[in-house]
């Protein structure tokens, strides 16, 4: 199971890097989304996939999942949700002002202001 997860995370990271290196802003944003998904899955895997019962203490349950990685993922998801929403708004504004979503044309230097 860990191996499968590792491959999945690797695929996610690969796709994320590919998308982030592209020129369109929207693709880059999707790439950052994939990157954070990969990171979240990595936390889950790194915390250990064992444990069959939910981490709620009740009688007779000994083999429960580690609750900490789940709490971390929830926090990280909320944060990446907020940041992604913010970049989307920003990309939209940048597109409206610059009339382009091509990062090559958004390079800019001091002479072009």
């Amino acid at each position: 199971m860990e191996l499968l997860m590792a491959i999945l995370i690797g695929v996610l990271f690969t796709a994320a890097v590919y998308l982030i290196l592209s020129r369109s802003i929207l693709k880059i944003i999707i790439g950052t989304g994939l990157l954070s998904h990969g990171a979240h899955l990595l936390i889950l895997t790194m915390g250990g996939l064992g444990g069959s019962a939910p981490p709620v203490l009740s009688d007779g349950v000994t083999d429960f999942a580690d609750p900490l990685p789940q709490a971390l993922i929830l926090t990280a998801i909320v944060i990446s949700f907020g940041v992604t929403a913010f970049i989307l708004v920003l990309a939209y504004r940048a597109y409206a002002v610059h009339k382009t979503d091509d990062m090559n044309q958004l390079k800019g230097n001091d002479e072009h202001d």
Partner: peptide
């Protein structure tokens, strides 16, 4: 607008790396 896009992208990537590193450390 132009510069902040880059600033945010750099920081989003470094934040993802931060999460990954914390995951390794936790394991």
């Amino acid at each position: 607008l132009r510069e902040s896009l880059k600033y945010i992208l750099v920081n989003v990537i470094s934040s993802a790396l931060f999460v990954i590193t914390v995951a390794y450390l936790y394991s």
